[in-house]
Design a protein around this nucleic acid. Structure first.
Length: 814
DNA sequence: TGGTCCTCAGTTTTT
DNA sequence: CTGAGGACCA
């Protein structure tokens, strides 16, 4: 390597004020390094020995196995600061990859703080995808694109695929575009071209046309000058493979490579990294990957834990550093988490420990509730109690397995007047009105963006229905021109009816005018003008529906958020990659989110509701993922527990409403995998009965608490047995215990209570043992009369609880 | 073209 | 039970 100034890139920073980076391994470098070791700079002083080693091992491959709360981000950022301040590389010579924009943003901030003075940029710190875009914009022509290609999001992709399926003369109902989009995504995650996909996969869709459709889709993307998210990884890989000279430029350029959350990389990302990390024999591969195999929870979307497990083979001579000293949680929380995760096989094996022990630290609490309503109520009460002891709501979080669980908490918090915020719900940029507006902007910047054209050509209504659009589409395809251009042509002919022609004429004129203003008018102003002149704003102003005002407000917000950008183009690029909008952090509120979105976060108090078989671990994970599915669920549980700093409260319920029907549930097997030494079973003052309090009968907890005798009540033991049985057929065994009785009615069908589908199907043909008008008793709702029967689903008018629908296994004739 | 009815499905999510 | 998406009719 001769240096950096002969690398022909123009966006790199000018000559540094700091010391010149000497050639690696040079005498000066070693002297400087020695000096730095003697006078350890500030930023190194707070590190523990393992962290310091991870930061200072700069030559050769390094794998940092960073357990939860062990200072992973700190190591990464300090390592970069160290590289910079020892003059080993310029910011532009460090490639640093994260998975989310948020992680990238945080790293930039923290590096800035560490280095003190302004570090220009870190132009190559970003997500795999944003770095992919950057590479592609420079070398687009090498993969058959123009550098102004557009990036399609999921919605665009689905619409495009739908068109392709229809164009093939296939029934798009039988072969849903969404499903195929998922398949393509899966293939791209694995780095597969149409030619490379497995024969079985190719046959599985559309009577064996899978491969053909995938190829057609790629062709279509190329004509549209567009990429989907997968292409942002695959195109650079293709480009590097077929242009070794270009790859070499980047080899010379990137002196250090860092990868965050390595356990989440998929095969394509892995190939990408391998390519960039290649070095001639004898040249050290300065790759540093940071991750935690125990926190790999994205297998279902293509992440390969294997990548991290295989690191030492992939990068010979790699140094592996484990960070196990935890700075986040109490010993009880760590003890519980460690014991749980130890049930997984195929781990690299870390055990977190902490040096702080405080006898006042609370153990992990396990609570039982009668049903999910009570669960929400009780959690709400706990939160209020903590609040009274002046704990901040911001320090509390409810982490659920599936988003439908959020609703009951939200309902409850609304009635309590408790502030909450839902993290991860539908996103700002995915809203209808925002996407419409964006389509207008896209088409102004990108006249060839047919998907944008089709989206808004008749929004607001301009009398341009399906027929017109199809005519335009065919016209454009036949001549291989964009649809907007086709529209321009076609209005000069008499191919359209006068009404459509007029409408189209106006649209074309509008866009031509806006395009003309692109360079001269400030972009926020132009954006507003576009929305007004197109009639889009008016469309919502005239809309009387309840959402309309909100939508208008969102449009204003959209314009406002554009102010931070220099141009419409810059804004569009940002949005296509960064779909998140910032949350209001000033409000003190409880966070509600899924376990998946909680990864990387921490809270003083964490509530983990819904620890029941079938929900957590999720039935589908077990059915589809088998053993590895179960292990991933267990890692998810591990992630959940390790989010907590001081208090971790786990809940399970006996009855949960699934698809509108009340079903009885069994405690999660994960509860049994917690160590009793670090866990307390919460004894609650209040009745677990909920409705039962009023005298409909006793809650099962009045008689038997499943936690008595260290989790060894007969019911629970039996539940354990049933679960571990390979055959799911022995549901007949039962005793007088309440748990059993609820789930498997005396003479009811032999069906699994957790799995709603099985229950529903297995009985649909059998005649019901009940008839309308029967007087029945239900454990939760008490007495009532049957008013309707559908298969095994009963509609019952309860005396006190009102009308409910329940499964027949839950009630008895009186 | 717009609204209403019906059917169907129903984990997790980033880019 | 809910929400989405499609079919169907005015």
């Amino acid at each position: 390597m001769s240096g950096f100034d002969d690398i022909p890139f123009f966006d790199e920073e000018p000559a540094p004020r700091k010391p010149q980076p000497p050639a690696t391994g040079g005498i000066a470098a070693r002297a400087m390094a020695a000096r730095d070791r003697q006078q350890r700079p500030d930023y190194l002083s707070g590190l523990n020995p393992e962290q310091a080693e991870a930061v200072e091992s700069l030559d050769g491959p390094v794998l940092v196995l960073a357990g939860a709360g062990t200072g992973k981000t700190r190591v990464l950022t300090t390592r970069i600061a160290h590289i910079l301040s020892t003059g080993r590389a310029f910011p532009s010579q460090i490639l640093s990859v994260t998975f989310t924009n948020k992680a990238a943003r945080e790293m930039k901030e923290r590096i800035g703080v560490l280095v003190g003075h302004a570090v220009e940029g870190m132009p190559w710190l970003g997500t795999f995808h944003s770095i992919g875009v950057k590479l592609l914009r420079r070398h687009a022509e090498l993969v058959g694109l123009r550098s102004d290609f557009t990036i399609l999001d999921t919605d665009d992709v689905i619409r495009l695929i739908k068109q392709i399926i229809q164009a093939e003369g296939l029934d798009d109902k039988r072969w849903p575009a969404k499903q195929f989009a998922g398949m393509i995504d899966g293939w791209k995650n694995k780095g597969l071209d149409p030619a490379q996909i497995p024969e079985g996969d190719a046959r599985a869709f559309a009577n064996g046309k899978g491969r053909e459709l995938y190829a057609a889709y790629q062709n279509r993307l190329r004509t549209l000058n567009a990429c989907d998210f997968g292409d942002l990884l695959l195109h650079p890989i293709r480009m590097f493979r077929s242009n070794p000279d270009v790859l070499k430029e980047y080899h010379d350029k990137f002196r250090y490579i860092l990868v965050d959350e390595y356990q989440d990389t998929n095969t394509a990302q892995y190939m990408w990294l391998r390519l960039l990390a290649q070095r001639p024999k004898g040249v050290p591969q300065n790759v540093c990957c940071v991750g935690d195999d125990d926190q790999s929870i994205y297998g279902w979307r293509g992440a390969e834990v294997d990548n991290i497990l295989r690191f030492e083979k992939d990068f010979p001579g790699a140094k592996v550093i484990k960070l196990e000293r935890n700075y986040r949680s109490t010993e009880h929380i760590l003890g519980a988490a460690a014991h749980l995760i130890a049930h997984n096989e195929g781990r690299l094996g870390k055990t977190l420990f902490t040096e702080r022990t405080d006898p006042d630290d609370e153990k992990v609490q396990v609570h039982a509730a009668w049903d999910s309503e009570e669960e929400a109520r009780a959690v709400g009460e706990e939160i209020e109690q903590l609040q009274r002891k002046s704990h901040k709501l911001n320090d509390m979080a409810i982490l659920v397995r599936a988003s439908f669980q959020m609703r009951e908490f939200e309902d409850r918090f609304v009635t309590l007047g408790l502030n909450y915020r839902v993290i991860g719900g539908p996103r700002f940029y995915e809203r209808l009105e925002i996407r419409d507006a964006m389509a207008y902007f896209r088409l102004v910047c990108q006249p060839a963006d047919d998907l944008a054209f089709e989206r808004i050509v008749n929004t607001p209504k301009r009398g341009l229905g399906d027929t017109t659009v199809r005519t335009l589409h065919d016209y454009a395809r036949a001549r291989d021109i964009p649809m907007l251009a086709a529209a321009t042509d076609i209005i000069g002919t008499d191919e359209l009816k006068p009404k459509a022609r007029k409408g189209l004429f106006d649209v074309v004129a509008d866009f031509r005018r806006w395009q003309g203003l692109l360079e001269t008018t400030p972009h926020t102003e132009l954006a507003e003008q576009i929305l007004d002149e197109s009639g889009y704003t008016a469309m919502w102003q005239n809309d009387k529906s309840a959402e309309a005002p909100g939508r208008l407000e969102n449009l204003k917000e959209l314009i406002r958020s554009m102010e931070a950008f220099e141009s419409l183009r810059g804004f569009l690029e940002h949005v296509s990659l960064v779909m998140d909008a910032e949350q209001n952090e000033n409000l003190d509120a409880v966070s509600i989110m899924t376990l998946h979105s909680a990864k990387g976060l921490e809270f003083d108090t964490v509530f983990l509701p819904g620890w029941e078989e079938g929900l957590f671990p999720h039935q589908r994970a077990l059915d589809e993922g088998g053993r590895s599915g179960l292990e991933e669920e267990r890692r998810l549980a591990y992630v959940g527990i390790t989010r907590a700093k001081h208090r971790c409260h786990i809940w399970f319920v006996s009855n949960r409403r699934i698809h509108g029907l009340w079903q009885s549930t069994l405690p999660s097997r994960f509860l049994d995998e917690l160590p009793i030494t670090h866990v307390d079973v919460a004894e609650s003052e209040q009745s677990y009965g909920g409705y039962g309090r009023g005298g409909y009968g006793q809650s099962r907890f009045d008689k038997a608490d499943p936690f008595q005798n260290n989790y060894s009540t007969p019911g629970w033991k039996r539940a354990q047995q049933n679960r571990s049985d390979a055959t799911r057929d022995n549901w007949g065994s039962r005793s007088g215990h309440a748990v059993e009785r609820i789930g498997y009615g005396e003479s009811g069908p032999r069906s699994r209570t957790i799995d709603g589908e099985l229950v529903a199907k297995s009985t649909s043909t059998e005649p019901s043992r009940f008839t309308v008008g029967d007087r029945v008793f239900h454990m939760k709702f008490g007495n009532g009369n049957i008013s309707a029967i559908e298969g095994n689903k009963l509609t019952i008018d309860f005396d006190k609880a009102g009308q409910k629908r329940v499964l027949d296994g839950f009630v008895e004739k009186v």
